[in-house]
Amino acid sequence: MKDHLRPAFILLVLLSALTGLLYPLAVTAIAQTLFPREASGSLVMRDGKARGSRLIGQSFSEPRYFWGRLSATGPVPYNAAASTGSNLGPMNKALRDAALARIEALRAADPGNKAPVPVDLVTASGSGLDPHISVAAALYQAPRVARLRAMSVKAVEAMIGRHTTGRGLGVFGEPVVNVLELNLALDAGGGSER
């Protein structure tokens, strides 16, 4: 065993320097040169101010905005300093309560809409930071947002289209709508407010 100590120690030190320092530093250097925006968190700037990250969702509850997924982070939803899912099991009453509360809130904000709610809109994401909803979940909310912003439903649906990302390579994953970018676009004059 003693014969092993020297090579074990020296190789651990050298490989630590290589894989624990040089490697991440090299990746950082390449990343910051080639993809500076992405490497720093894909921040969205408006009027010189950082209003969010393109990849991190925000909590929306005002009816004139599109709402995103539920978020189980604490103490506030969409806490991007402490990501987590709800981890609620399928039979847990809290799961039903959260979904039901969301359905009721959606119905209260849009009384005429009796359609079933797309399931991604009543469930919490794994990260608690999901920036996206399904296209169906956006279309479901389009009449409400259109009404409150005095826009035509068609115009809102066109904006949804512009903020939709298709499947990867046309096959992988699901088509999604970026909620923050869509709401920013609405505020920027996609329609006058009321």
């Binding site: 399931v119 991604d120 994401s125 399904s134 169906a136 279309l139 699901e174």
Partner: peptide, 17 residues
């Protein structure tokens, strides 16, 4: 649906479905 993953989406990300 083509615009909607459906199923059990609790704990899942929309982009992955």
């Amino acid at each position: 649906g083509a615009d909607h993953p459906g199923g059990n989406m609790e704990g899942k990300e929309a982009r992955f479905g």
